[in-house]
């Protein structure tokens, strides 16, 4: 039996090659090299300030690395802007929820669908429920739809968004302002919004932050479910080690910007370096 780490049959979807990010004198991410393979669920853990969120900011183009290269799906995305990277199929959520709080649940999802207007990657346009992708011949088709039937297109977009919201169990809040949702549902809405961009790779930054064990458990089930349903590769930052141990196939451990360990949950649990890095620090999960 091979461990997921060694499963070379899956092709790498994301490659970080010696990525370094320096903020003035502080090296937040230091010579970070890793690979995420198609369909994997990989965890990124490490103490506060280790540089985890910065890794996500680098992948999504919020920051550009001072050194190194990031390749997604065969394309060098290092110099690209955030919206271009989103077009290619990376979506994310935030450690501190960043919904458009004055906009409704539906509008939050619609904004995320926006880019499909201009995304020339035809096959992926409106792939939200998988089936409709086949109905979409190509980008030019949508261009013409835009011209002859803007309102009809608009209607279609709204019904797609509603479908997605329903799928994620948020339909009772459809026209509520995002800020009015219970905390756990705000987390789900952030995920819904990310899914509306039609990603191949989903980055979740501490999705269970601020949740009690029951809510955390539910959320992890939810993550597993959408992974199946939307055919996703997931890269997940987590603070609570128990959470990651439960669902991740592979874990990368960071400390002071560097990778200090990598392996299956079992290997990580028994790795002396990891234990040392967390000993005496805010670490409760093991």
């Amino acid at each position: 039996m091979t461990s997921p780490t060694l499963d070379l049959s899956r092709k790498p979807i994301l490659i970080l090659d010696q990525v370094t990010m320096q903020f003035g004198g502080l090296v937040a991410v230091d010579d970070f090299t890793a690979e995420i393979r198609q369909g994997e669920l990989v965890g990124l853990i490490g103490p506060n300030g280790a540089g985890k969120t910065t890794v996500f900011n680098l992948i999504t183009g919020i920051y550009h690395p001072t050194k190194g290269k990031i390749v997604f799906d065969g394309i060098d995305i290092t110099p690209l802007k955030p919206h271009q990277i989103t077009h290619l199929g990376i979506a994310r959520t935030f450690q501190n929820i960043r919904l458009f709080s004055d906009m409704t649940v539906l509008e939050n999802v619609l904004v995320a669908q926006h880019h499909k207007f201009t995304n020339p990657d035809a096959d992926r346009i409106l792939k939200i429920n998988g089936k409709s992708a086949k109905r979409v011949a190509n980008f030019w088709f949508w261009r013409s739809v835009l011209k002859v039937g803007y309102l009809k297109f608009e209607k279609e977009m709204v019904s797609k968004a509603k479908e997605l919201i329903e799928k994620l169990g948020l339909s009772k809040f459809m026209h509520e302002k995002a800020s009015a949702l219970p905390y756990g549902d705000q987390r789900k809405l952030e995920i819904a919004r990310a899914l509306a961009t039609d990603p191949k790779l989903l980055l979740l930054d501490e999705p269970a932050a601020g949740m009690n064990p029951k809510e955390t458990e539910d959320l992890m089930r939810f993550v597993e479910r959408i992974r199946e349903e939307f055919d996703l590769t997931i890269f997940l930052i987590e603070h609570d080690m128990k959470v990651v141990m439960g669902i991740c196939e592979r874990i990368i451990v960071m400390d002071y910007g560097r990778i200090i360990a990598e392996g299956t949950p079992k290997e990580i649990q028994n790795n002396p370096k990891v234990i040392e890095a967390y000993l005496g620090r805010e670490w409760e999960g093991v």
Binding site: F94, R98, F100
Partner: peptide, 22 residues
């Protein structure tokens, strides 16, 4: 759609760009 993007940008530029909005 463009109006929605305008309102989203007024709330949070980086997040809006991460939604694929130019």
């Amino acid at each position: 759609k463009i109006g929605m993007a305008m309102r989203a940008i007024a709330a949070d530029i980086p997040t809006t760009s991460l939604m694929g909005v130019n």
